[in-house]
Each structure stands twice: as structure tokens, then as C-alpha cells.
Design a protein around this nucleic acid. Structure first.
Lengths: 240, 240
DNA sequence: AGCAAGAATTGATCTAAATCAAAATTTTAA
DNA sequence: TTAAAATTTTGATTTAGATCAATTCTTGCT
């Protein structure tokens, strides 16, 4: 085989990546059928972000949208005086980068090596005109993000430290199930510092509460980042 | 004049209510021009909700969407064990009733006598197909709601009681300015109980903190529901 | 106008989680 | 493989805001 043929083969495979994509069923692109998705593929680009790298910064001009294929991301806001608050964790299938302004309203950072599908904002917005279904699906996803944010407001306004952690684990577990990656253990891709920040607590409180939950056999841990929910069905009771 | 003519006149006026509507400039319908808005008018209905009445309940099937014309609304979630958390206040121009599910994920209640513009969900969704601009504008509004919710997460996660109240007043003040109803005083249409609930505090803490802010001349109050920000530009400093 | 009933304020005490401090464990890198 | 750095856990103490408890102030209502 000559190099050109090999290159063609590579491109061919690349041209079918959407059809084979593991998150297609839950991501916005899933609304398109096999024949239409080829057109979306043509305007998308694969991007890799190693652990700890920033995907964009709060205040940057919005020029690109992303679809998460693999990995996980934290999004956080900084206040004028430097306080930081994580406002969400994003997982495969989530859409990232839309804003109500011309600039991103938060910073996005990869929690582990992460694969994204990248779109130029203008190009994708023009694509909406051709396939309004996509815009509708994205509206759906944004509505879901809003519901998740409102749940987090409830958690921060009304839940105790123990309830916050249990709810957090339930959320991750449910998220994994949606991806077809259900069951125990749950891998926590974020540090204790990130968990504490997200839940409006300190690392000390998180650590102490985890120790309590372990003693009471409600959870079990392997190392520091893999967690078993011993009886998931029973956990909602502990939230009351 | 005979009654029929008078009735016709009334209908005529009614048919122009969108063109004259005070919130058109900021609401989703503002994206349509005078000739198109007549069609939107035809599928909309005026509704009045007296103070304290529910517009819909968490768990109800989503059958109608609303546009707020006048008044204000609180939206809140209830947990299984009866705890309540207000997740937002809505004002003229805001779009209400969309959900990521088949059912509303929160309850909506009028804080004062409130005028809404009502749409059947299915009918409006079909309207999107004819005027995709509208769906795009609503996507914008939902993105804004999401940004507001993320700001509230920051507030609950990182701000002290005093900062929460000051930020709350700034938000209302900015909201009023957007409506062209800027300047002091700000009318608080909600009770101390609602403010406290929304800010993740107790009424006692809200009351005490208000007294402090009054003593320090940062705010001034007329009665219990009208509030002056003595130096609005300076307030962001107190947030650090 | 007067008087309940609810809403808001003020005071005293308590407590969950924060902060300060140190030890143990895990990860990284040489 | 080991040592340094970083992360996590555990302990002692403090504190902002919650809770419990009266008053005071509004606001409908007859």
C-alpha cells in the first residue's frame, strides 16, 4: 500500500466517527440520523485536553462550542476578590460553551484527560437554520442544566453536610447509569478540594463526613477516589 | 353607537395588545416585527393571577407556557420531607413554564397581582417551526436563567449573610433598570420569609443584617418593603 | 377606629461547620 | 526505591448564623 491510500483510509474512518460515537445517543447530535450526521461531522473537530488544562476562561470571547465525548470537566466562576466557586461538573454527552453573553461566564477545566468535539460558534449556529431539530435539542439540554443548577441551589440552601455528600454521590451514580455505565464503584475524577468547593463546604468537613459514612457502612471506598454506595436504594432516606 | 360596534372596537384593541405591550422589548416576542406578532397574538391569552395564587405546581403536566407582563412570581421546589427552597424570582419579560421534563420541576406563585400572557405548549412549539427566531430567543432567555442560577450558586456557596443581601438588592435594582424602571427606591414584593428562604438564611438573620445595613447608612427603608441603596456604585466594594 | 393575626425585630443561647493545627497517607519525581 | 511534595485525615477551638424566646410593629377586618 502506498501512503496516499493509507491516508485515505484514515480519513474515511474519521468521516464515520460520529456514526460510531459512544455519546451520540445522549448528546445533541443524536437527534440527527446517519445521513444528516455526516454534515455535522464535516463541521466538527476532535480536540484533546490533558488533565488540568483549561478549555476556556471566564471572560473570553465565545468562539467555540463543545460536546464532551470522554472524560470530565469542572466549570467555575471567580469573583472580583478571587473567591472561586465550582458551579458544575460536566460529563460525556454534555454540551459546553453556550452563554447568554458574548463572553463565557465561567472557566472550564479538564479534570482528567478529556476528548471534546469542537464546533465554531457561527458555523454551528448557521447549521441550526438547516436543522432546527438541533437547536431544539440544545434548548432541551440547557433546560436540563438549569434544572440541575436549581437542584444545586436547593442542596446549598437546605441540605446538611452529610446530605450534600450523599446527594452528590447519587447524582454521579445516576449520571453514570444514563451513560450505560451504571453500578458500583463510582470513580470520583475530582479532588476533595473540588468536592468541598462544589458542595459549599471545607475539605475538612468533607473528609470527616466521609469517615462517618464509612463507619456507618453507608459507603465503602477503594483508595481515595473510588466509592461504593452500599445500598443505593436506601440512600434517599438518609436525605430526610 | 350600538353595542356590536363597541364590541368590535374592544376586539380590535385586544388584537393590538402585543404591539402596545410594555414588555415586548425584553420578552421573547420582541424578536417578531409588527406584522408577524399579530399571529403570535392570535395564539396567546391574557391571564390574571391574584397575589398568593399558584400558577402551576411542581409535578403538574406541562401544558402551558407563560410570559410575565406585570407583577412578580416566586418559583420554589419542595423536597420529599417538606423542605422548601425558593430557586428564583421572576419579573416582567421573563418566560415561565419550560421544563426539561414532562412535568414542571417547581411550583410558581404570584407575589402580587400578576398579569401573564399564556400559550398552549403544543401550539407554541408548532409556532417555533414557522418562526425559528422565537425558539432561538427563548434559548437565549433560558441561557440567561442558567447564568442567574449559577450566580445564585456562587452566592450560596461563598457569600456571607451581609453579602447575600447586598447582592440581592443589586440584582433587583439591575433588573428594574433593564425594565426602564431604574433608580431608587426598590420595592420588595416578597416577604422577609421569602427573602430569607431564597438567600439560604433565616428571617432573624435577614432582619438583623438589615438593621446593621441601616445603621451603617448603606441602605435606607421606607416602611418594610421599599428600600433605598444610598450609594449603589459603592456597594460592590462591600461584597469583597 | 379598634383589635386580632400575622410579620418583623431584638435578645439569649446553641450548634454545625469553619478555622487553625498537626499527623498520616498518597502521589510524584528523581 | 526513596524522598519530597501534595493530598487527605484527624483533632482542638472558634464562630457565623441557627434556634429558641419575647416584644414590637403592621395590616387587614369587623
Amino acid at each position: 500500500m502506498e501512503p496516499v491510500a493509507s491516508c485515505t483510509t484514515r480519513n474515511k474512518n474519521n468521516n464515520h466517527r460520529c456514526a460510531q460515537c459512544s455519546v451520540r445517543l445522549i448528546a445533541f447530535c443524536g437527534i440527527l440520523d446517519d445521513s444528516d450526521i455526516i454534515q455535522l461531522e464535516a463541521i466538527s473537530k476532535n480536540k484533546s485536553f490533558p488533565k488540568g488544562t483549561n478549555i476556556f476562561f471566564q471572560g473570553d470571547q465565545v468562539k467555540t462550542f463543545f460536546n464532551i465525548k470522554q472524560g470530565s470537566i469542572k466549570i467555575y466562576k471567580l469573583s472580583h476578590d478571587g473567591r472561586k466557586q465550582i458551579v458544575g461538573f460536566l460529563y460525556p454527552g454534555d454540551f459546553l460553551g453556550m452563554s447568554d453573553q458574548e463572553v463565557y461566564t465561567y472557566t472550564a477545566e479538564a479534570l482528567e484527560d478529556t476528548q471534546l468535539c469542537q464546533f465554531n460558534k457561527i458555523v454551528l449556529e448557521n447549521f441550526f437554520l438547516k436543522f432546527p431539530k438541533i437547536e431544539n435539542k440544545i434548548l432541551n439540554l440547557v433546560n436540563h442544566e438549569l434544572a440541575v443548577a436549581q437542584d444545586q441551589i436547593f442542596l446549598l440552601g437546605k441540605y446538611s453536610a452529610r446530605e450534600r455528600l450523599l446527594q452528590f454521590f447519587l447524582n454521579i451514580s445516576n449520571q453514570r447509569e444514563k451513560l450505560g455505565w451504571g453500578g458500583n464503584p463510582i470513580r470520583l475524577s475530582m479532588s476533595r478540594t473540588d468536592i468541598a468547593n462544589y458542595l459549599g463546604l471545607t475539605i475538612e468537613t468533607v473528609s470527616r463526613t466521609l469517615s462517618e459514612l464509612k463507619n456507618e457502612q453507608i459507603i465503602r471506598m477503594i483508595g481515595t477516589h473510588d466509592i461504593f454506595l452500599n445500598n443505593k436504594k436506601q440512600i434517599p432516606q438518609y436525605l430526610n
